[in-house]
Design a protein around this nucleic acid. Structure first.
Length: 568
RNA sequence: GCGCGGGUAGUCUAGCCCGGUAGGACAACGCCCUUCCGAGGCGUUGGCCCGGGUUCAAAUCCCGGCCCGCGCACCA
């Protein structure tokens, strides 16, 4: 186990789940510090992707009914029967392999596949035999309700809940594109063999934004903010670039401005969260690598001890999901988009002559007239038309109407929005932050472990420490703890062991500042603030402490801006 | 899922080959000491991954499971 992992477990960031029952791969517990860190990360994400966009956050069930995933395509692409060669160990999708080798459309059941393999003595290319066929259904199944119940799945992504609620969301945004809908929550994939600690989990945390746009307007009003940011890109042909986003769009490396915008925003977010710029790149999915719903996808990848790992996927899902849900639910999930200028179209139109229709068709005349107006005609000299009124087909001859050329104004069109989806793996980002922050340095000739978390993300922001565990010191310290907690600062207190030992404890968990109550405090109500990274201390009046700490915690200012350097 | 290696207090580790009292270090906790960068004194808590087998006796040998690491495969 790495030194970092050992620390994370020992100090309460992460634990193996179900430990006392022997554990189960693919599940982790977030301990107090890990949970705090991930919550801080989620809030930072909200600032970027909800508060600073035309976007909202919703929360939908983790248990979903089967229909959702039949529509989304997950039921199909997740429920495969696989066969594994016992000699070379290669795994194939059984139906694909049988089709390719025998040209048989096999049923996707274990029994059918097994029978075909046995009947035809199907072998692997290497000559090896296949073992028992097995399912790899990457979705967890469950049943809803008593008895046999209704089949349900745990969601493999949070996104579908947003697509399902699209009609309501569109109303919420008063039918106006573009808008974004975010969801932070759990998702589940029943991985065949999860490994690599927290990198591949069966239950994991996602933060997803579905940003709905007019397909003709894949732009963003705030693109300029990131247009000149230089990013590291690897395209689908493995070409590498260090290039501004503006240039990447101009050169066609990134398909459109909106993808580039979210790449830029994602990068700024990750840097603010504490991921190192030189260990971050954006890589385009190769054609055979993309999910079934995406036309283009860029992953943010971070360099860790596991190599480059995917931490964010930014996909152009086009209208795939909404289109599928329109088809399967029968609901109209389109958006009416007004043109800037109404388009004038010349067309032929039937003008009914009600004076003549009335006496002949009596009560039906009005309905016939309406039907006539809706008819499309191409020929001006048409002699008769057939209309359908209340299920009855009626032939109307040209004496009852005239055909005129009219100019019509078309004010807009119905479209299915496209969706750009930045999807964040919170567990992986949390872990990467920890790896990128964990360092060792030397203080007074001794090695120390220090977690250089960004101040605004640290789970414990301030530790209050009495220099001596004497009542006078403790009393003042506890008053300060109370004061800081009241001000909303995550504060801990510790009086056990020597002061140096306690500084080390808090360095190790990434606490940016320690406030020490010493002899001088008792004389003039000042304390020292110690900076985790430099171990420098400044002396500050207790009355100013909340303001000073708040400013320090929301910026990267140096503590020496706030007081005299203290030398013990 | 296959192959190889591993699993001993919170952490690291000795013991395992060759069966017979599980030992250390650090951490944690309490008291004393008092001291601005992990090293004082005294004391305390806590452990052989789980299940089965062999044996008078299993941390140790055997089998199965779970977990961890590595390689292969999988990761829409």
């Amino acid at each position: 186990m790495s030194e970092l992992m050992e620390m994370l477990i020992r100090r309460g960031f992460l634990w193996q789940s179900f430990e006392i029952y022997g554990g189960m791969a693919g599940f982790i517990d977030y301990g107090p510090l890990g949970n705090g860190l991930r919550r801080r990360l989620e809030n930072l994400w909200r600032e970027f992707f909800v508060i600073n966009e035309r976007a909202v956050e919703i929360d939908t069930p983790t248990v979903n009914i089967e229909e959702v995933f039949i529509a989304s395509g997950h039921a199909e692409s997740f429920t495969d029967v696989a066969i594994e060669c016992q000699k070379c160990g290669k795994v194939f999708r059984a139906d694909h392999y049988i089709k390719e080798k025998l040209n048989i459309e096999a049923d996707c059941t274990i029994e059918a596949v097994k029978e075909i393999i046995e009947t035809y003595d199907l072998r692997c290319d290497c000559g090896g035999r296949f073992g028992e066929p097995f399912h790899f259904n990457l979705m967890f199944t469950t049943s809803i309700g008593p008895g046999k119940g209704k089949k349900g799945y745990l969601r493999p992504e949070t996104a579908q809940g947003i697509f399902i609620a699209f009609k309501r969301l569109l109303d919420y945004f008063r039918s106006k594109l573009p808008f974004g809908v975010a969801q932070i929550g759990r998702a589940y994939r029943n991985e065949i063999s999860p490994r690599q600690g927290v990198i591949r989990l069966r239950e994991f945390n996602q933060a997803e934004l579905e940003y709905f746009v007019n397909p003709k307007e894949k732009t963003h009003p705030q693109f300029e903010r990131y247009a000149n940011d230089v990013v590291r890109l690897v395209d689908k042909f493995d070409n590498e670039y260090e290039i501004t986003l503006k240039e990447a769009v101009e050169k066609g490396i990134i398909a459109h401005e909106l993808l580039a915008y979210f790449i830029g925003k994602t990068r700024r977010f990750l840097l603010k969260a504490g991921i190192k710029d030189d260990k971050l790149r954006f890589r385009q999915h190769k054609d055979d690598e993309r999910a079934h719903y995406a036309v283009d996808c860029w992953d943010a990848e971070a360099l860790t001890s596991y190599g480059w790992i995917e931490i964010v996927g930014i996909a152009d899902r086009t209208d795939y999901d909404l289109r599928r849900h329109i088809e399967h639910s029968g609901e109209d999930l389109t958006v009416f988009v007004q043109f800037k200028e109404p388009i004038k179209v010349k067309k032929l139109k039937i003008v009914p002559d009600l004076k003549k229709l009335g006496p002949v068709y009596r009560k039906k005349a009005k309905a016939i007239a309406k039907a006539l107006e809706e008819l499309e005609v191409k020929d001006k000299n048409i002699e008769k038309v057939t209309v359908e009124v209340d299920g009855e087909k009626i032939e109307i001859s040209s004496e009852f109407f005239s055909v005129e050329e009219v100019e019509e104004e078309i004010h807009g069109e119905k479209i299915i929005p496209h969706v750009i989806e930045p999807s964040f793996g919170l567990d992986r980002i949390t872990y990467t932050i920890l790896e990128h922050s964990f360092e060792k340095d030397t203080v007074d000739g001794e090695e120390r472990k220090v977690l250089r978390l960004k101040r605004w993300i640290a789970p414990v922001q301030v530790a209050v420490l009495p220099l001596l565990s004497k009542n006078e010191f403790i009393k003042v310290s506890l008053e300060i703890v109370d004061m800081l907690r009241n001000a909303g600062i995550y504060t801990e207190y510790d009086d056990s062991g020597s002061i140096g030992r306690r500084y080390r404890r808090f360095d190790e968990i990434g606490t940016p500042f320690c406030v020490t109550v010493d002899h001088q405090t008792l004389e003039d109500r000042t304390v020292t603030i110690r900076d985790r990274d430099t171990t420098k201390q400044v002396r500050v009046e207790i009355d100013r402490l909340v303001d000073v700490l708040k400013e320090l915690l929301s910026s990267e200012k140096d503590i020496t801006e706030f007081g005299e350097i203290f030398k013990a």
